[in-house]
């Protein structure tokens, strides 16, 4: 029962991303060509609302459903890992036309070839875990 809220959030997330076409390969291509406001509108409004929500949480010290204080861990400072990792991620995002969230959503929609992308992503994650100590961070 304690997981119900997470399930509902996931269902909502899936429906919103599918209906907003954010999980369409075409929209990702169009975004990277700067030929539509569509994806920038989606990401921009999400970030705008996110900034407001996080400020509200921090300033009013809002608590979660379970009554615990909400603490959002800051990201560790650095440059190399974010820039290099980001570039690799971007190459894959533009090629497969999907980032991790959309992969799950498209699998649910029944576009079976996305499972190959998902398998590749798990393989990539696994490979990172193996070679992590040899990479600059």
């Amino acid at each position: 029962m304690k997981y119900l809220k997470f399930l509902l959030i996931g269902v909502f997330f899936g429906i919103v991303l599918y209906k907003s076409e954010a999980v369409s390969w075409y929209r990702i291509y169009e975004m990277f060509r700067f030929e539509s406001f569509h994806m920038y509108g989606i990401i921009g409004s999400a970030v705008g609302l996110g900034v407001l929500a996080i400020q509200l949480i921090k300033r009013n010290r809002l608590k979660s459903f379970d009554g615990e204080a909400i603490h959002i861990a800051p990201k560790e400072m650095g440059l190399t890992r974010y820039l290099l990792g980001g570039c690799l991620f971007g190459l894959g995002w533009a090629l497969a036309g999907a980032c991790p969230g959309p992969m799950y959503i498209l699998a649910g929609a029944g576009y079976w070839p996305i499972l190959i992308v998902l398998f590749g992503a798990i393989l990539g994650t696994f490979t990172y875990g193996i070679v992590k100590k040899h990479l600059p961070h």
């Binding site: 974010y82 971007g90 497969a96 036309g97 393989l123």
Partner: peptide
Amino acid sequence: LLIGGFLVGFGARYA
């Protein structure tokens, strides 16, 4: 599809 997914998975954890 496989390479695209691999880059997403690898890059996401690296970043």
